[in-house]
Design a binder for these strands. Structure first.
Ligand SMILES: [Mn+2]
Ligand SMILES: [Mn+2]
Ligand SMILES: [Zn+2]
Ligand SMILES: [Zn+2]
Lengths: 138, 138
DNA sequence: CCGTTATTACGAATAATTCACAATAAGCCC
DNA sequence: GGGCTTATTGTGAATTATTCGTAATAACGG
């Protein structure tokens, strides 16, 4: 079996670089991380990498569909490797903690817009806002 | 019947100012407008108003619950006067056009995550991404 | 009409992200 | 493996959206 991440990068028509491998690697341990956090993490193995390069790498990987970007209100963009399943997120309105939530498409009255006014809807993005377990004690 | 917007501002515990009335007034004609668009609009009746003041006004009105702020991915914050009904939005991924989508349930949270991992969910924010009628012809 | 205090204006600062362009290195051909 | 082409990265600056500190102004209660 070949190196999985390298393979997926190449298959996406992109060149395999140390920076891209490092970002993918870092993302494994920290789902829903922002660019700066990823930069700090990647720096441990790739000390010279620039923040701007992390931005570029994340942009390329996102566009290639290898990672997913979410942009919660009031937060910088977050990235994750879990893709292809259109899952949703619960976000703590107090501390910003992010939890994956499995797609609720089955029993979801609000996910079928009765009147989308002619929109050709491709995806339904759901964000649950509330308090995480830790923040409920306060 | 008294002046409706002034009344609601006062009831919220805020002072009634020309700037706040002007922003609310502008918002009537342009739902889902961003701060700069509102600034341009308000300037027509209040030439001296600063962009920063529009930011402050929008912040105060939002915090008071008199208007609602949405922050779609890739867009500056948008504001609207339609509040209290927990409605959703269809957004064109190409041109950014925003359409209101009625909530089938009507009250928050209209959806329940299958597994929220202990989150106390207060609202479910749903955004439908797709192509608006105009952009489908392209 | 006065005084208190919230609100606005002014100027600058910050946070997140993008851009232009030169330096580097991946992948391909030989 | 060595060179060539071109994608990618690094460098430095610019941009966009928003916030902050503080002085000037104006709303509202008395
Ligand atoms: Mn996720
Ligand atoms: Mn709306
Ligand atoms: Zn929390
Ligand atoms: Zn459109």
């Amino acid at each position: 079996m070949t190196s999985e991440p390298a393979e997926s990068i190449r298959t996406a028509g992109l060149r395999v670089t140390a920076q891209r491998l490092a970002v993918l690697g870092a993302l494994d341990g920290m789902p829903h991380a922002d660019t700066e956090a990823l930069h700090r993490a990647v720096r441990r193995t790739l000390p010279g990498i620039t923040l701007q390069s992390v931005y570029v790498v994340l942009g390329a990987l996102t566009e290639a569909g290898l990672i997913r970007r979410i942009e919660p209100a009031g937060s910088p963009a977050l990235y994750e490797r879990r893709i292809g399943d259109n899952h949703h997120h619960a976000i703590c309105s107090r501390c910003g903690a992010v939890q994956d939530v499995d797609c609720v498409v089955g029993h979801a009255p609000c996910l079928h817009p009765s009147d989308a006014a002619g929109f050709a809807v491709q995806t339904a993005e759901v964000t649950f806002w509330g308090l995480c377990p830790a923040c409920q004690n306060a």
